[in-house]
């Protein structure tokens, strides 16, 4: 018998897919980074997350490969969460540096960096956390 949580998997897949596409759009057009290394890592992780979302939807439709799709989704969610954590840490370090070096202006920039970190948590961390929670429950 299929549980409520399992029935939620395709919805989770759609949410992951949409949020990754949105994140890619924001990250590449609205707030692009001038760092090639970051851009490559960001695109790779978001592409992985989008593919995992597609996998969850596909597995639900075809009723095949559900276990593999779940594992893939967990890996992608973990990678996305790790990226979000790294970005938040780097933003916090930047805020500290800007505040220390640039005086009053740096204080403003530091606040902007902290607000950006909060937005990163919302945009990049919430969906993978929900994914991991839902998918882990299923595993138990």
């Amino acid at each position: 018998m299929t549980s409520d949580r399992e029935r939620a998997h395709p919805l989770l897949g759609v949410v992951a897919l949409v949020s990754s596409v949105l994140a890619l759009w924001v990250g590449l057009t609205v707030t692009p980074s001038r760092s090639s290394a970051f851009t490559v890592a960001f695109v790779a992780v978001e592409a992985l997350s989008a593919a995992a979302g597609l996998g969850l939807v596909g597995a639900a439709i075809t009723t095949r490969g559900r276990a593999g799709a779940r594992t893939f989704a967990r890996v992608a969610a973990t990678a996305q969460l790790a990226l979000a954590a790294i970005v938040v840490v780097l933003l916090a370090l930047s805020a500290a540096w800007l505040r220390g070096i640039y005086g009053a202006l740096g204080e403003g920039l530091a606040w902007a960096a902290i607000v950006a970190a909060a937005l990163v948590v919302e945009a990049l961390a919430i969906v993978p956390i929900v994914q991991l929670v839902v998918l882990r429950e299923r595993r138990r």
Binding site: R34, S35, L93, A95, L109
Partner: peptide, 13 residues
């Protein structure tokens, strides 16, 4: 100069 921190790689002052 903007390469010195992560945050400043997203904007210009």
């Amino acid at each position: 100069a903007n390469d010195r921190t992560f945050a400043t790689q997203f904007f210009f002052v």
